[in-house]
Every structure is written in C-alpha cells, then in structure tokens.
Amino acid sequence: MTASERYVRAWEGFWAENTGEPGEPFWDADPTLTAAPHTELLAAHADRTLPIVDLGCGNGTQTRYLAGHFPRAVGVDISASAVAHARRADHDAVAEFEQLNLTDLVGVRRLGDRLGEANVYLRAVLHQSDPADRAPVAAAVALLLGRRGRGFVVEPTAAAKAVLQQVAERPGGPPEKLRQVRKHQLRPAEVAPGEVPGLLRGAGLEILDQGATDLAMSECHPDGTRVALPANWFVVAAGEGRRPGS
C-alpha cells in the first residue's frame, strides 16, 4: 500500500508553488526552536555515531541542522519539488535528500539496506497522514531503526486545533502561510488521545521516553509571540522480541 493520490497531489502542489525558502511554510521554524531541542532529547538515548534520517524533510531546514550533529543526515520526502528545494538550499552539501513515499515499505527497506541501522527524526508527519497511512509510516520508522537506532517522534495533540483556529480567525483573515496550507488541503488531522503511542507500539516499537512540548511554527501572533502547537514527543527503539517492521 502507498499513500493516497490525494495526499501525494496535495504535497506536490504545495511545494511546487512555493520557493522552498526557510521559514516560508507555516511549520518551517528555525532549527534552534525545533530540531535543536529535539536532538537534545534524542541524544540522551541515541548512538550519535549512527546516521539520522529526517522523514518528511520538506525543504530540508531541519535536516541541515541534524547534519551537524550526526555523521550522516538523509532527508526524504514524498514530494519531488520539496526534495529539489532541499537540494538547492543545501549550499554546503552537508546532507543528502531523496524522494520516498514512507508507505512504500519496500522502498524504505532499500534505504535501510543502504544506510544500515540509523536514528530517525519524525516531526508532525503522522497527524498529516491519511488515517490508513499512519500505521505504514510508523512501520517505516521501525524498519530504519534496526536494533541500535533510536527515533524521535513529535506530533501535535488535539488541542492544537484551538491554536490554529485562533490564527485563522484573525481580523483580516488568516495569514498567507495558513492560507497556503488550506489552499492545498494540508489539513491537520484529528489525532485521538493515545493514537500515536498506539501506532508506535503497533509497529513493534518500545517507547523509551516521552513528554509534552510546544511545537514552534514559523508564524507569529499579532503581538509578536510565536505560534506554537501543543504536542507530545516520544523517543522509541525496536521492541524486544519483535523484528523491526514486522
């Protein structure tokens, strides 16, 4: 099974109409606010000599940061336009980027075979995935980790909907960044309480650590404070007695 045509078209349409400049997408906050604190949480459990794979890398903003903290960083995205943006923006060629549908587990296995065991970064991908695609995405994480890899997964909670509604209902209407999200139907999906840990465990992953956080966006409120979505984070590893991805 691979991701729905609607999902693929939505993301390709979004990235094809954007420049790929850092900060242009609604969620593309500076790495000091996103990948940096996430890396600190992951580092407490991870073997930093392993490579890291940024799943759903978009224009590669976070991947390039990760490349400075792991010996090899690979960003993958379902959109060919996103991958093209990421490669153009990587002026110093610190990372690698390729197109990959995360629900294509054969393709995920091929990537894992090339890299060997790896750490994984998955930021706000599950909640945007169609419901039928979420279990395969979680399975992709397990396949790439192998036994030694560790994954960092962070997803907005249902409470994020109220924050997005506040941004959308500003006087004068929603900001352009949010209009682009709506135009291409990149709608944040409702994630039921307990759904994300259930998906991770269903993929044979063990949750080593978890907590609550605020997921920074690139947009600010009219008073200058940053838009941040309530979120939960998880550090995961292959569970004992389970073959990754089985």
Rank of each mutant, 00 (worst) to 15 (best):
L205Q: 09
R6W: 12
A158Y: 11
R64F: 13
F14E: 03
L122W: 10
T49H: 12
K177I: 01
K183M: 04
V196K: 02
E21K: 14
D77S: 14
E155V: 14
G202N: 04
P37M: 00
H127T: 14
P136I: 00
T34I: 15
G60S: 07
C220S: 09
W15R: 14
R170D: 03
L105N: 02
L122A: 01
P175Q: 02
V76C: 09
R134L: 02
R48Y: 10
V191S: 06
G245L: 12
E206R: 15
G146Y: 03
R170H: 07
W15V: 09
D223E: 03
G107L: 06
M217S: 12
L55A: 04
A36M: 11
S4Q: 05
D47K: 11
D223W: 09
E195T: 03
L111E: 10
F97C: 09
P197T: 12
E155P: 15
N232F: 14
V108S: 02
N101I: 13
A36R: 14
E206Y: 12
C220I: 07
N119E: 09
R109V: 15
I78Q: 01
G58T: 04
S246Y: 09
A158Q: 05
D28I: 09
V153I: 15
D104R: 13
H38P: 06
G151D: 04
I78T: 05
E17N: 10
V8S: 03
R150A: 11
P31N: 08
E155N: 15
G107W: 12
E155F: 06
R88N: 11
V83Q: 02
F234D: 01
A95S: 07
G56S: 07
K177E: 10
E206A: 15
R243I: 14
Q180P: 02
G211E: 07
F26R: 00
K177M: 07
M1V: 13
R187A: 11
G146H: 04
A67V: 05
V141W: 03
S79Y: 09
D77G: 12
G116Y: 12
L111M: 08
D90A: 05
R147N: 04
S246E: 12
Q166I: 01
H91V: 15
V8R: 15
Y7F: 15
E17Q: 14
A231C: 08
G211Q: 06
V76L: 09
F152R: 03
